[in-house]
């Protein structure tokens, strides 16, 4: 639990620094991300067991589908709630947290919804970092992976594997990988409708 406070303090400190000083750290975030992913890889390699792969099979394939459908329904719900054209809600929901893809793709059609697509999905990533360690007290760490959407392949993978445990790490990565593979095709398809 103490580590969660450190995570929240780190996020808050970073947010305040970004808000009030706007420093240019260059690629620091990406570099740290790659270091984290490398360390996660080492950890997976150190603890790799074929039996774990067999255990994973079906859930790893069904969970991304549920995540995507649930996310689209959530986006559609917001569109209906705020009287936004349903197409924007569906495409923002289909982004599943991948803000750097969703925002620019939507912005080709609408600057305003491009900004919403970017921010909404960015907030989902931040929300996952804050909420995942807490909700796994009530729901299974595997099901809770769904809140991270496509980000579970990289940015939220460290926090999920840290709090959900090593057993969840592989499922988490595969979940994010499947969504990441689908979305570059799905989002332009929805936008073209």
């Amino acid at each position: 639990m103490r580590f969660l406070y450190l995570v929240l303090a780190s996020l808050t400190a970073g947010f305040l620094v970004g808000r009030f000083y706007s420093p240019d750290f260059g690629n620091a975030y990406e570099i740290m991300l790659y270091i984290m992913i490398f360390l996660i890889g080492v950890d997976l390699g150190l603890n790799f067991r074929v039996g774990e792969l067999r255990k994973m099979d079906r859930k790893a394939l069904t969970l991304p589908v549920k995540t995507l459908v649930g996310s689209i329904l959530g986006g559609l719900g917001v569109a209906l709630l705020l009287s936004i054209e349903p197409k924007w809600g569906v495409v923002i929901g289909a982004g599943c947290g991948w803000y750097s893809l969703t925002g620019p793709l939507i912005a080709q059609y609408s600057a305003v919804y491009g900004a919403v697509g970017f921010l909404g999905n960015l907030f989902r990533e931040v929300l996952t970092i804050i909420i995942y360690p807490v909700i796994i007290r009530w729901v299974s760490p595997e099901d809770a992976v769904s809140i991270g959407g496509a980000t579970t392949m990289d940015t939220t993978l460290p926090i999920i594997s840290r709090f959900g445990g090593r057993d969840v790490a592989l499922l988490t990565f595969v979940h994010g990988f499947i969504l990441t593979s689908i979305e570059p095709f799905l989002l332009p398809l929805i936008l073209s409708l």
Binding site: G120, F123, A144
Partner: peptide, 21 residues
């Protein structure tokens, strides 16, 4: 923009979790 984005974050993540559960 802020409110809409937060609502999207909450409902898309919530929708995914609800379906998973």
């Amino acid at each position: 923009l802020l409110g809409t984005s937060i609502l999207f974050a909450l409902l898309t993540a919530g929708g995914s979790l609800l379906l998973a559960l």
